[in-house]
Write a protein that binds this DNA or RNA. Structure first.
Lengths: 345, 345
DNA sequence: CTGAAAGCGCTTACAG
DNA sequence: CTGAAAGCGCTTACAG
């Protein structure tokens, strides 16, 4: 029968060694499943450890071994769909590998980002690091390398590190090609600001994909049709308002994320603009709410990216000499009810 | 100018002591801002530490001091609105206090929950623990107490620990009172299963509030009108389908969460049931998407609860003799467009 | 104000 | 297969 009394809580490896009549070295080897211990010894040690309610001291273990069994994840936000979902899958894989996840959110703050790298907050505290969706500056790459642990990126790339992402450029092209294929010529963009202090990767790539799609369709670019937002529902709402204020309204809008698209749809409904009759809308993500509002979008596999990032780190931990890997996950256009041919065609 | 070379990365407290011509004790005191050091010494130490790129070894520090500067948060899910938002606010407060957050998700698994407590996964690894939304069993409370660190609960209560929550019973009453006030008599429930293996607190309390509101309005309870779901959009959809299949349909439905309500609304739209003309719907949460679908709901302050939980833990850390606190956050009915008087009134 | 020294609890060569 | 011992890098009484 398992019990854990107050005394048991404080049992150290020396207590277990004493109880089993062996050295602390043998206890360490037995409990970690290492070779070089007889089965009899191991069984006795395991038994005594359980009786005493022994639990290793992570601090002592990591001081000696240099391994912390923790992995940091640096994320711009926690409370947004993409990040929550990627994080969940990431954490799940690592938990199964008996690793802990240190959560470090930037909360959208460039200052928090600066502090993270300048103050060596992760130093010696983790065995590996995942960076979500940030376009890294060279000095940040240097700071990460100085940590001397495997680093992986989710949603961006850097030559030095393993990365997992979708092809944001192609995803945007897919969305806008769908619109031009339907016959639209005047196509707006609601996207992240290119001057966002946090420097996300997606806005830059997706905007480039949008422009490229227009070019391929022989449509001249009109800077007025590009509205900046901040990847939130409210931001999408405001950006849509600006687009509708234009002397020459677009007949379709490509929105860089589903959450912004929700905001755009909301504004259109209130403004009595019919979708897709008067205006088509296409997003990126396939957010879990998208089917509710019947949004046409380019789906990306989010949980899969989180899990892949975890596996990349696990592989790097198992073999430190392994070269960085780069995984691109596929996207897929999901046509629903918010897109149609422009009126009068 | 700040630099961090490879050598700097490995500097230890002894290196700093040597560089500054003082003992390691003085370095420790200087860097932690403790008293008993002259300003001249402190300045010199700080300067040398910066030059060498010194960063403390968390393992060594915690081995000696017993403090890890980490706080664990145990959450049933990461990728749901409520949890992401509460978690974000929680982490933000702790980060500002120079504390780290260890994220441990149960991923909805009762087995993961069992393992967490049985295998002493948090033992000596954290200075405090936050438990989200779980109704704790006695043996779990015992296991948490054996950790010998402050524990706080968010979304549930236990006599031994500090807690932060809303009054789920009242929130449900508020929602259902609104419905009965409008004249509804046949009111359905879409709620969490009372036999969910994870034992959440909210479903039990909210269902009780629903029943109490009916009773106060003199309406007999009809078990058929209570549909079990799992707090997901898809679950809300399925539950709504079952309610519509009833020989005698409800004229209104109280849904225990906005996310389930979204699913319910989706089903109603596809089934061509008009809301609120044919059927009223009210939720709980005030999810960020709720205003998009015009959902009437009972708002709860989620980020505030996360921040309050962090502050409760901070206070306990500062004064271990402080008795457990219990904070109840207010809820507020937000009437939008999914509720109205029943037809023919 | 300062330093010498003990010791936190492990892991890891090393020797047998 | 096993153990004695060193040492990881700090913090903390203690003494001066």
């Amino acid at each position: 029968m398992e019990r854990s009394d107050a005394g048991g809580t404080r049992a150290s490896i020396a207590d277990v060694a004493r109880g089993a009549g062996v050295s602390t070295a043998s206890v360490s080897r037995s409990l970690r499943g290492l070779g070089g211990v007889s089965e009899g010894t191991r069984a006795r040690v395991v038994q005594v450890a359980r009786e005493l309610g022994y639990a290793i001291s992570p601090g002592a273990s990591s001081l000696r071994s240099g391994r912390t069994r923790s992995i940091a994840v640096v994320t711009p936000f926690i409370d947004r769909w993409f990040f929550g979902r990627a994080l969940g899958a990431f954490e799940s894989v690592l938990q199964q590998a008996d690793l802990h996840v240190l959560l470090h959110s930037l909360h959208g703050s460039a200052e928090a980002r600066r502090r993270l790298f300048a103050e060596r907050i992760l130093h010696r505290r983790v065995d590996a690091v995942l960076i979500m969706c940030l376009k890294l500056e060279q000095h940040e790459i240097d700071a990460l390398r100085a940590l001397d642990v495997p680093v992986a990126l989710l949603g961006s790339h850097a030559v030095d590190f393993s990365s997992v992402a979708i092809d944001d450029f192609s995803a945007a092209r897919e969305a806008v090609d769908h619109l031009t294929g339907l016959g639209h010529r005047r196509i707006g963009l609601i996207g992240g600001s290119p001057v966002d202090p946090l420097h996300f990767t997606a806005p830059v790539e997706r905007r480039a994909g949008y422009r490229d799609a227009l070019k391929s369709a022989g449509i001249a670019r009109d800077r007025e049709l590009e509205a900046d937002a901040d990847y939130t529902v409210a931001g999408g709402e405001r950006a849509m308002a600006r687009l509708l204020d234009l002397p020459q309204r677009p007949t379709a809008v490509f929105v860089e994320s589903d959450e912004m698209a929700f905001g755009a749809l909301r504004f259109l409904r209130d403004a009595r603009v019919r979708v897709p009759d008067d205006l088509s809308v296409v997003g990126i993500d396939d957010h879990e709410m998208s089917h509710l509002v019947n949004l046409t979008t380019v789906a990306q596999p989010v949980a899969e990216q989180g899990a892949a990032a975890a596996h990349a780190l696990l592989a790097a931990l198992a073999d430190r000499s392994r070269p960085p890997s780069r995984v691109m996950h596929p996207t897929r256009l999901v046509v629903r009810g918010t897109t149609a041919a422009p009126r009068g065609t």
